[in-house]
Design a protein around this nucleic acid. Structure first.
Length: 879
RNA sequence: CGGGCCAUAGCUCAGUUGGUUAGAGCGCCACGUUGACAUCGUGGAGGUCACAGGUUCGAAUCCCGUUGGUCCGACCA
């Protein structure tokens, strides 16, 4: 049968993926095997596959497939995240551009209907794309963070945390966008250095003294001032602390307080405290129990709480302009300095962000954080690479309470109901419960008013932060809240989490918190942090930069295996990947290499017996060597997997396949052109090739499955992806060393051939100078025949005499002479040998230096080096 | 400003508890190819392991400092 000279992934991948799914290989249900579980970091429900996903999911698939081959019950749970803010933004844009609708014109219910339409249309596309990559997920378990069951879990946890006092509603400084009238997350605020002015303003003493001069960028906020703060160590103001000063224009008296926060060097060393309009001032205000006066409305205009009527109703920037005049007039303006400072602007509207106090829901971090920090520091949860412990600790030791409310609609609506009973003159009361009915019941009890109805309650308009749902992922996907003793008990803790380090705080840390809070146990044994995929200029790949290759096109161009190889070959855990399509090309070439090895062995005719004894000995040695070498590689691969050194494992297999298997082994056993090969060697080769396919399968599932089936006719269900992974065993290092020595001899001869323009096929006569080591080496059965074949020799003799007209080289402790039919440049030869001699002498000197040290009593190494020295002294003598 | 991480061949990176005269891939150079594969083969060149000090018999590896890069926080009235 004619096989194409190239491997064509497109003819293979879809077919095998469908086959695997049909056979149910990816399905997992609890049984008595050891479980190996991974929950996918859920991509955005409306997202499309990008490089980061491919890297991440390739790694997960490698781990899952390896576990499956190791005989474990491998369970990979796929799913998607509703991605509150990102998805809502997409829906809003779609409504505006396609439907000509503004969110403000829709009711919540209408908006949600459109959002679900959007989700139905685009949701889950990415899951199909993961199949193209070869991801062996248990698709029957596909989860979504807004599935009914998941939604209920999120609500239940909110209520539970509230009941336990670990969740509360409080005032906090947020980033307010006065144009969009919404809160922004920190990530949506962009800071740039801009020109600004620093106003130096005098606040006169209430006792008629000079008072104090402060510096501010925002003179329009002075009417919200509640204090002037100075550093307690600042001698200039020591006498003022505790006194009162007057706010210009309105003459309201405020105290001068002392606080370490104030920088003596900056400005005048005196700071106005405006808790409503500056986050730091708010904190100072809290420390000193100061009042909060909010003088700026949601739209950025000065509101009526401002006691200085002339600026009420003006925009904050207009007010600032006018304040200059008012302050000059009153004589309070000392000077104005030009000044460069960082200004935060809204990513969306570019308007200057206004720090603003608002009521938000918070999860208390003090109780939740402690066990999560301990788990990582004690390596109860192991990080790979471990250096991320530092980053984690740094953050966990400086935890702030987690604001979980968001002013959005797409998400889990906060289960809090408010009752405002003004006739009773009461404050707003809040009732947190899983349902409105329960909240009503609570309200009735609390108020003693049985006549209250649902109409008297108003549910909180906000939804929860996306991470406040995804932190439950490892528990909720196994239904661990409703059935805590169900299958969650089998799969949890999951084996490993594979994710980018950029969400170590958002997600990883919080899953650990939730794990201890709700199951009293860590959510995963290990975390494998992937690096960021960057372009050649080290820029993070992103849609807005347009520097990200089209993932699907890459898969089409190089095949899934090629892309997987490309991503993995430079993806040490935690290290960034500078992505270059060249890497995928290497992967594609590797597939072709495998494919052509297949073509070679498939093309052989067989005979019962080897042609002669020499060939039999040579082939037997080759087969033994390959198997020993394979043991060595598998042992290393297992060690690499245990440390999550996947790139190294792949590289080891790659080198083994390319160099040992293809370049050496197949050449060793390859029969002459159109000659047959003996049955036993062919069988051994097919077996070895098959084992190699299994070993490589986790990394490159498609090509290995295809070749596995091409190698032999297999029974239904005898698939590569469900074979037992090759077991590692001790390798025969002596045999490997002897063949290694033979390879050096062959390389030496090839080198001489190369340098003297001797054609590859012209047979050469080689003599090795008689020595104990030479005899010992060639005592290995089949070795002489192996050298003769691969170096293309007509003779290989051991002799005590130096042949004439020969070039020589030394390897190990033997000296070889290659006879040539040409005159030898004696000078050049001598020079070469002199260089060799110098090298050897240098080597020996360094060893001698070591050995002459008395403190080299350090046990075994000494013996080894001593041995080394003897060998080299031997070699030196020969030269 | 505070903290983390990093600095090894032209490029991208390995180098596991300190013990080879420092490795790989790509790139480069030379030679080669009717033979599984030019998506290839055989060879080769190329490094003061950022710099300075210390510990040690021995440092790319451990410690301290300097410089440079990078990321994350606070970004300052």
């Amino acid at each position: 049968m004619e096989i194409s000279a190239r491997y064509t992934p497109s003819e293979v991948e879809e077919r095998w993926y469908a086959h695997w799914e049909r056979r149910g290989y990816f399905r997992s249900v609890p049984d008595d095997r050891e479980p190996f579980s991974i929950v996918i970091p859920p991509p955005n429900v409306t997202g499309v596959l990008h490089m980061g996903h491919m890297l991440n999911n390739t790694i997960q698939d490698i781990l899952i497939r390896k576990a499956r081959l190791d005989g474990k019950n491998a369970c990979w749970v796929p799913g998607t995240d509703h991605a509150s803010i990102a998805t809502e933004a997409k829906v809003v844009r779609w409504l505006r551009e396609e439907k000509k609708l503004r969110k403000a014109d829709l009711t919540r219910e209408q908006f949600m209907e459109y959002a679900y339409q959007w989700k139905e249309k685009y949701g889950g596309i990415i899951l199909g794309q993961l199949r193209k990559l070869g991801a062996s997920c248990d698709w029957e378990r596909t989860a979504f963070t807004m599935d009914k069951g998941y939604y209920d879990d999120v609500i239940r946890v909110f209520v539970d945390l509230y009941n336990k006092g670990k969740l509360y509603r409080g005032l906090r400084m947020v980033n307010w966008d006065p144009e969009a009238k919404t809160v922004l997350s920190n990530e949506e605020v962009i800071y740039h250095e801009e020109n600004a002015q620093l106003f130096h303003i005098q606040y006169k003493g209430a006792d008629g003294g000079d008072g104090v001069v402060i510096a501010t960028q925002r003179p329009e906020t002075i009417f919200a001032d509640v204090a002037i703060a100075v550093n307690p160590k600042d001698p200039r103001y020591a006498a003022l602390v505790g006194k009162q000063v007057l706010i210009p224009l309105i003459q309201r008296a405020i105290p001068v307080i002392a606080d370490d926060y104030v920088d003596i060097e900056f400005g005048t060393g005196a700071l106005k405290i405006t808790p409503a309009h500056d986050p730091n001032d708010y904190e100072v205000g809290q420390r000193h129990q100061l009042e909060v006066i909010d003088t700026i409305a949601d739209d950025g205009k000065i509101n009526e709480r401002c006691a200085f009527a002339p600026i009420v109703g003006l925009d904050r920037f207009e007010a600032r302009k006018q304040m200059k005049g008012f302050l000059e007039e009153s004589g309070n303006l000392i000077k104005i300095e030009d000044y460069r400072t960082n200004i935060g602007r809204s990513e969306r509207t570019n308007s200057v962000v206004e720090p603003k106090l608002s009521l938000q829901w918070f999860v208390k971090m003090s109780d939740l954080g402690a066990p999560a920090l301990k788990a990582v520091l004690d390596e109860e949860v192991r990080f790979y690479p471990p250096s991320f412990q530092n980053l984690y600790r740094n953050w966990m030791e400086n935890l702030r309470d987690w604001c979980v409310s968001r002013q959005l609609w797409w998400g889990h609506r906060i289960p809090a109901w408010y009752l405002k009973n003004e006739s009773l003159g009461q404050e707003i009361q809040v009732f947190v419960a899983e349902t409105a009915e329960e909240a009503l019941e609570k309200a009735r009890v609390a108020t003693g008013n049985a006549a209250l109805s649902l109409d008297d309650l108003r549910q909180d308009e906000d939804v929860l932060d996306t991470w406040a749902s995804s932190w439950l992922w490892p528990i909720s996907v196994f239904d661990g809240f409703k059935q805590p003793d169900g299958e969650v008990a089998y799969y949890y803790p999951t084996s490993v989490l594979v994710t980018g380090w950029d969400i170590i705080f958002f997600w990883v840390a919080r899953m650990i918190m939730a794990g201890y809070e709700y199951r009293g146990a860590k959510p995963f044994q290990s975390v494998y942090f992937t690096g960021m995929v960057r372009d050649k200029q080290r820029r993070k790949m992103s849609k807005s930069l347009g520097n990200s290759p089209d993932a699907i096109k890459l898969l089409d161009d190089f095949g899934a295996d090629g892309v997987r190889y490309g991503l993995m070959s430079s993806a040490a855990a935690g290290g960034d990947i500078l992505f270059d399509e060249k890497l995928c090309e290497n992967g594609r070439n590797f597939c072709n290499k495998l494919w052509n090895a297949l073509r070679l062995v498939k093309g052989w005719n067989t005979t019962e017996q080897p042609e002669n004894e020499e060939i039999a000995r040579k082939n037997a040695l080759a087969v033994r060597w390959l198997n020993e070498k394979f043991q060595q590689v598998i042992t290393q691969v297992e060690a690499d997997f245990a440390q999550y050194r996947l790139s190294e494992a792949l590289l080891g297999l790659y080198t083994f396949v390319w160099d040992d298997f293809c370049s050496w082994y197949l050449e060793m056993i390859k029969p002459g052109f159109e000659q047959p090969i003996d049955q036993a060697t062919r069988e051994a080769t097919l077996d070895a090739f098959s084992r190699i396919m299994v070993a490589l399968h986790p990394f490159m599932p498609f090509v290995t499955e295809e070749i596995w089936h091409q190698l032999r006719a297999r029974r239904e269900g005898d698939d590569c992806c469900v074979q037992p992974y090759p077991k590692s065993a001790a390798a025969d290092n002596n045999l490997i060393a002897r063949v290694e020595a033979a390879k050096n001899v062959i390389t030496g001869i090839r080198d001489i051939r190369n340098q003297n323009q001797v054609k590859p096929r012209d047979p050469l006569a080689v003599t090795v100078l008689d020595s104990e080591s030479a005899r010992a080496l060639f005592a290995q059965t089949g070795l002489r025949e192996m050298v003769m074949k691969l170096a293309v020799l007509e003779s290989l003799d051991i002799s005590e005499e130096e042949p004439a007209n020969a070039k020589s080289f030394i390897t190990g402790t033997e000296k070889y002479y290659v006879a040539l039919n040409q005159t030898i440049d004696v000078e050049a030869e001598r020079k070469k040998l002199a260089e060799e001699l110098e090298y050897q002498r240098g080597f020996i000197r360094s060893i001698e230096a070591k050995l002459s040290n008395e403190r080299f009593v350090s046990g075994a190494p000494a013996a080894v080096v001593d041995n080394e020295r003897k060998k080299l002294a031997d070699g030196l003598a020969r030269v």
